[in-house]
């Protein structure tokens, strides 16, 4: 556990030493801020529902950009050898990196809390869905971070890692909007695989164990995939 914290510290600090953190956070805030507030007054509703419904799509692009370097860079410069020959296990490494990615997602979401405060001035805001929304956003962020880690473990090229990660996250997000393409008998299953479906449930303020289990399953499968991919390289 101690090692996880040291690796987390290093990876999280790295985001802020390089320009990545600042670029990603700015892009995220500009895009969500614009898309949310440009239609906010048309709806004339005091809620962040539209903001949360944007998140799955935006996360699909932004989170792979955060996670793309986590393994690719290590493989590329060879520092993975240094890391793994210090007294750490692979679990320490992957959890350290996962937590750093999640912490980055959280620091990206933190400024958006001002949206909620701004909106609260305009009318009576129901805080239940807001808390559910942020909880769901962090869960989904964690799941996408795991997918990004998996993509990053596949290649030494960060751009390829980004594209693979984005492709997987994007497919999961859009899956339940493409249901008309599938035969009726498997609709239920396909619908269940879609990330958006589960996220929207939570962001309405409904905390259902099925949705939590879904995101945790995505994390477990992705992290296991990453472990296999890294082992395969040795």
């Amino acid at each position: 556990m101690r090692q996880v914290i040291h690796i987390f510290n290093k990876e999280f600090k790295d985001y802020f030493i390089s320009p990545i953190a600042y670029i990603v956070i700015s892009v995220f805030l500009i895009v969500t801020g614009w898309l949310f507030f440009s239609t906010f007054f048309l709806y004339n509703q005091v809620s962040l529902r539209n903001f949360f419904s944007l998140l799955p799509l935006i996360f699909s692009f932004v989170i792979p950009a955060i996670t793309m370097r986590l393994f690719s860079e290590e493989i590329n410069i060879g520092s993975y050898e240094i890391l793994l020959t210090m007294p750490v296990t692979f679990k320490d490494v992957i959890f350290g990196k996962l937590l750093a990615g999640i912490a980055m997602v959280v620091s990206m979401l933190l400024p958006t809390f001002t949206y909620a405060i701004t909106v609260a001035f305009l009318g009576e805001l129901d805080w239940g869905p807001i808390i559910g929304g942020y909880f769901g956003a962090i869960l989904m962020g964690a799941a996408f971070t795991s997918i990004g880690l998996f993509a990053s473990s596949l290649t030494r090229n960060q751009i390829i890692a980004f594209i693979i990660g984005m492709a997987i996250c994007f497919s999961l997000t859009l899956l339940d909007k493409m249901l008309f393409l599938f035969p009726g008998s498997i609709l239920g299953v396909i619908g269940y695989i879609g990330a958006d479906f589960h996220f929207q449930n939570i962001s309405k303020g409904i905390i259902d164990t099925r949705d939590i289990i879904y995101f945790i399953s995505v994390m477990v499968i992705s992290l296991y995939g990453a472990q296999l991919a890294m082992q395969e390289k040795n």
Binding site: K10, D14, I17, I77, G78, S79, E81, I82
Partner: peptide, 8 residues
């Protein structure tokens, strides 16, 4: 060839 983290 000492593959250390470049950015640190």
């Amino acid at each position: 060839s000492a593959p250390l983290y470049h950015n640190m």
